[in-house]
Structure formats: C-alpha cells, structure tokens
Design a protein around this nucleic acid. Structure first.
Length: 573
DNA sequence: ATAGGGTTAG
C-alpha cells in the first residue's frame, strides 16, 4: 500500500487523480478496500481531490468498510456543510460496521465547525459507551467541540476530567476561553500551564488573544518575551497575534515595529490587523497609506481590509474617503457584509448626516441587525434628533432587543432636552419589559496586575479609597465649573440625581484606581459594552488636566488618548 | 498509522 500512498502524493490535480483511479482499476488494485479507503480519503480531503466525486464512489460500494466511512466523514467534516458528517455518522452507527475513535474524532470536528450544540454531548456519550474515553486525542477533540459550540463550562469539565493531558489539551481550553469571551480565565490557565509544561506556538496565540481583549500590555510583553527567549517559531500567525496584541494594548508603535521587522511574509491578516490598529488610533492617513501599499505589494485588499480602511475613515472623520472606499468595493468585486454597512452608518451618523445614514440602512440587501440600529440611535442621540431616535427605537423593540442601553439612550435624549415626562415613560416601559441590564466593565493593569471594575463596584479591597478619589475628582471638577452636568448615562435617575451618577462609570472607577496606584504613568481601561462619548470625554479630559496624567482609554472600537485636558480623538461625537 | 490545539472584523 506504500505504492498507492506514493502515487497519491504525486497527484496535484483532479484529472491526475482520475487517471490514477483508472490505473488502479485496470491493475485490479482498486478492489482492495484498503486501497479504496486511501483513495477515498485523499479524494475527500486533499486540495487535488473532490468531495462530491468521493461521495459518488462511496455510494457505489455495497458494504463500505470502516475506513471508507471515515474518509467520507472526514471530508464532510471539513466541507462547507460539516453537519452532513453527523448524518453519515448516524447512518454508520446503525450498521454492523461500528464507528471507531477516528470516526468520533472526525464527527466531533464536524460538530465544532457546525456549532452543533446538541449533537456534541450525544457524541460524548458514544465516546464513553464505545470505550474510547482514555484516548487523549479524542478527548481533546471533544473538549474543543464543547468550547467551539459555546459550552465552555462543559469544556472546562472535560478538561478537569482528563487524567492525562498533553499540550494540545491545554491549548484547546486556553484558546477556547480566549475566544469565548473569558480572557481572564484564559490567562489564568496559561499561567497554570507554565507551571506544568512548556507552552508552544499555539499556546501563546491563545494567551496573546486574551491580552488583546483585556488590553494588558505588561502581560502581553511577558508573553512576547517568552516567545523570544524560548525561540518559539515566529510564524506569520504568531506575528499577527503579537501585532494585534500591541495594537489593542495601546502600543501602536510597537505593533508597527513588529510589522516592519517580521521575517516571514505577510498575509492578508497581517495587513488587515495593522490597518485596523491604525484605524483604532484615528490615524486615518497612515491607515489609508497602508491600504494602498498592501495592493502594491501584490496582496489585493479583501473584505476585511476594506472594513478596516472604512473604519479608519470613520475614526478620523474622513467622510468622503470612506464613501469612496465603500463604492469602490462593488467595482472591485469585494463583497459587503453587515459590518461594512454598520461602519458607514457610523461614519455618516457621527458627522450628523443621519438621513444619509438611514438611506444606507434601507439600501442593504440583508436585514439590518441590532448593532446597526444601535449605531444609528447613538448618532440620533448625539445630534439630538428625537424623530430619528423614535423611529429607530421602534425598530429595536420590533426586533425584540431588550438591551438596557437602547432604552437608556432614548431616555437620555429626552433628558437632554428636558422632556422629563418622556424620560419617565421610557423608564416605565423598561420596567414593564424584560430588559437585560448589561453592566459596563473595564479593566486596568496596574503594576502588572489586572483589575476589573463594574458599575457601582465595591469588590476591590481598596474600594473605599477609590470612591474617596472619585469624590475628590468630582469636587475638583466642580471647581472648574463643570459639574457632572451631562452625566446620566445608564442610570435610572431624574435631574436631581445627576451628580451622583459620575461615580458609577466603570472606566472612571478604573481611572480613579490608576490615580491611587501610581506605579504606572499611563492607564489603559477597556470598556466592552459602552462607547466612550460625550460626558465621559468631558470628565476624563478634566482628570487628565487636573492630575497631569496621560490617560488612554480603549472602548469597543477605538482609543482615546487624554492629555493636558485634550483628547486625541476627533470629537465629532 | 488516516486523528486533537491557531491570528484580523461595526
């Protein structure tokens, strides 16, 4: 069979593969099922192959042998319709030819790719029943399937229950936690792993991704140092992750250094990451320059590149450039998705061109999603357009959105115009419905330790000191005659309670904590749910002036650098 | 003796 292997490995196109099949049939080798299985596997999986053709051959076999089933299931698992692999698995398990560990492995891979949440535990039961539970590789696949389907608690449980874990098991859970919005736990696990074994390239990707999300540059630096000290292979994926980490931690310069000095050749992801990094800093010109350069280097901008470039225009207030790019996409045959429309709506909305933004929404070929309407609502609030805000709010309610921010934004808009009656009406509607209160939270890394703050948080051991600091800030801001006049975001209050609201913003808690713990010159805070805008800008600007500190705040989409009472972000928001 | 873990996006 080594003969068949060597012949197969020489096939680089489908026509060669068919020639080989003819050869195998005439020489009679093809009647041996081991040969057929090898052929099917290659045909179903390799780039020279063709899955439908493999399936066609498979159907002509009366009693397929186990490896032939496996070949087809493996091929289906990595096809665009992975769920079909599960269907095949089910048919197979009804036959005398029972699945083996590999069959389960391929099918679990299919579950992971198809996000088949209910099928994964069923496969888990089979794995136990068939007695494959001691197979480390299979259990890692299982763990990964749980985590990819969003059942991270099961993934953690699967990990805990393993009596033997190898590096891939650790990597699967670290990456799962990082991608599943649990970056703190991902980093904890990474640290725990280092006590037991040496991380490799894949491990650091999970750790870097977690650092990116948290915006913790000290920890990110440590991971980078580790990569260098252990001479881990700095392949393009690792470089991309490092660039992204520095960019999201407020160190674009370092990101750019890595981008310039990387030894391996750049991919789309590399360019896109760097363009997006510049976009987050509001450096529109450089981002567009890089976008141009990317094309010149022979890598045609893809859909994400355009998104990053439009986003750069968005953050730099370059409305015309953004519109040009948006139009260029159709000409260049690059597909648009809801994010491109979202960014355009934001771009037009932020510059006050609400009607044009609304037209963009109407021109969409797909149904606009919640985030898109929220963007438009935000812009309506900024520009005090009650009529638009009411239209958009209705849409949001129709879509069943029950996010507190949607109601609060409308309520704040009424409040800004002194329409307290309407404020009350919205607040009451909120109580009537099942509104999800999503607390904003922020992270700050001080002296290498990560702290998390939520609205009204009293969990930190130094919470009293932090609130004292906030009171002091409040007092000193009053001396400037500013008072927290516009500060009623996200709070269920009337005009008389406005002032107190200042204390409850998570990023302000984080800033106050950064001021107490003076080890760091800069302070990075990340707020995942809210956008730093309006009142927040005013308050943090003043803090930077009063305390002579540079404060960098990263919100969902961009960086805001506050220094000497000014913000580097263009302020048309 | 064919298998598990991986980077960018409003």
């Amino acid at each position: 069979m080594a003969y068949v292997d060597s012949l197969l490995s020489k096939c680089t196109s489908f026509s060669q593969l068919k020639q080989l099949q003819a050869h195998l049939v005439t020489t009679g080798i093809f009647q041996f099922y081991t040969c057929r299985a090898k052929f099917l596997d290659f045909c179903a999986v390799s780039s020279a192959g063709n899955l439908p053709y493999a399936a066609y051959i498979f159907r002509s076999i009366t009693f397929p042998y186990k490896n032939e089933w496996n070949a087809i299931i493996r091929g289906l698992a990595q096809s665009p319709k992975p769920i079909d692999a599960v269907t095949f698995y089910v048919s197979m398990s009804r036959l005398p030819c029972k699945p083996d560990a590999l069959t389960c492995s391929f099918t679990l891979k299919a579950c992971a790719r198809a996000l088949a949440r209910s099928e994964t535990p069923q496969l888990h039961a089979h794995v136990i029943r068939f007695g494959f539970a001691s197979d480390v590789l299979l259990r890692t696949t299982l763990l990964d399937a749980y985590s990819k389907c969003g059942d991270l608690d099961y993934a953690c449980q699967a990990f805990d229950e393993m009596d033997v874990r190898d590096i891939a098991s650790w990597n699967a859970l670290i990456a799962g936690l990082a991608q599943g919005n649990r970056p703190t736990e991902a980093l904890q696990l990474y640290k725990k792993m280092r006590e037991n074994m040496e991380p490799n390239e894949v491990t650091v990707l999970g750790a870097l991704s977690a650092c990116s999300q948290l915006g913790v540059n000290k920890e990110g630096d440590r991971v980078h140092e580790y990569i260098k000290s252990r001479n881990l292979d700095c392949n393009v994926i690792v470089c991309n992750a490092i660039i992204d980490m520095y960019a999201k931690c407020g160190l674009v310069r370092k990101a750019y250094e890595v981008f310039n000095e990387m030894k391996c050749s750049r991919t789309h992801v590399t360019w896109n990451t760097m363009i997006m990094a510049l976009a987050m800093y509001g450096d529109g010109e450089q981002a567009l320059e890089l976008f141009e350069k990317m094309g010149q280097t022979g890598i045609e901008p893809d859909s994400v590149s355009y998104l990053a470039a439009i986003c750069a225009c968005n953050h730099a207030g370059m409305v015309d450039d953004g519109m040009k790019l948006f139009d260029a996409m159709d000409r260049c045959g690059v597909s648009k998705n809801v994010k491109h429309y979202g960014s355009m709506v934001d771009l037009l909305g932020r510059s006050g061109r609400l009607d044009e933004a609304y037209k963009i929404v109407e021109s969409m070929p797909t149904v606009p999603d919640v985030v898109l309407w929220q963007t438009l609502l935000g812009a309506s609030k900024t520009y005090g357009n009650v009529e638009m805000a009411e239209t958009v709010s209705k849409k949001l309610v129709e879509m069943g959105s029950n996010h507190c921010g949607d109601f609060v934004l409308l309520s704040n808009l009424y409040a800004a115009q002194g329409r307290w009656h309407d404020v009350k009406r919205v607040r009451e509607a909120m109580k009537g419905q099942d509104v999800k209160k999503v607390p904003g939270f922020s992270y700050i890394e001080v002296g290498g330790t990560i702290y998390k703050f939520m609205n009204g948080d009293m969990n930190h051991p130094k919470w009293k000191e932090i609130y004292w600091k906030l009171d002091e800030i409040l007092l000193r801001i009053r001396e400037y005659g500013y008072v927290a006049e516009t500060n009623y975001v996200c709070h269920d209050i009337g005009p008389e309670e406005k002032e107190n609201a200042l204390c409850y913003h998570s990023e302000k808690l984080a800033v106050a904590f950064g001021l107490i713990s003076t080890q760091d010159g800069t302070c990075i805070s990340v707020n995942k749910n809210l956008r730093i805008c309006g009142d927040c800008h005013v308050v943090i600007k003043l803090i930077s002036k009063i305390y002579e500190r540079e404060i960098i705040v990263r919100d969902r989409t961009r960086f805001h650098r506050f220094k000497n009472g000014a913000c580097s972000c263009k302020e048309y928001w």
